[in-house]
């Protein structure tokens, strides 16, 4: 039973990442593709957070830890960084899409292929 509870986040991660990849590969709307990227991003963040968890271990506050057993400390910093970076990249990409829409009036990835060959 307990094993299943621990495995549950990882199953969610796999679902989220495959959902995001499906969106990116098979949707033509650029905004939907960016949404797919954001879904992958959240999946990866969940992966990092759930990776750090060790059953019965303390929070990694070095100065006041009860013992030597602490959960992995860097994962949370990594996740926070990843969330911040994710915000910046998503905003930048969406602004690129807005520019494309303003210039040529299309957010279809099959029509935004002026650079090719």
């Amino acid at each position: 039973m307990n094993q299943w509870v621990i495995a549950l986040p990882f199953i969610t991660v796999a679902l989220l990442i495959s959902l995001g990849l499906y969106t990116i590969l098979f949707k033509r709307n650029l905004i939907k593709m960016i949404m797919g990227l954001a879904i992958i991003q959240n999946g990866v963040n969940l992966f990092l957070v759930s990776l750090a968890y060790r059953e019965g271990y303390a929070a990694p506050i070095w100065t006041s830890a009860p013992g030597e057993d602490m959960v992995l400390p860097t994962s949370h910093a990594l996740t926070l960084t990843s969330i911040v970076i994710g915000l910046a990249t998503t905003a930048l990409m969406l602004s690129f899409v807005i520019m494309l829409k303003k210039h040529k009036g299309s957010v279809d990835s099959f029509k935004n292929r002026r650079c090719r060959e």
Binding site: L21, L25, F26, K27, M33, F110, N112, R113, R116
Partner: peptide
């Protein structure tokens, strides 16, 4: 070969995956 360079983002990701 030239035709394979479609310029569609989906294909770029597809090649990477």
């Amino acid at each position: 070969l030239v035709k394979a360079h479609t310029g569609i983002i989906n294909d770029y990701v597809y090649w990477m995956v």
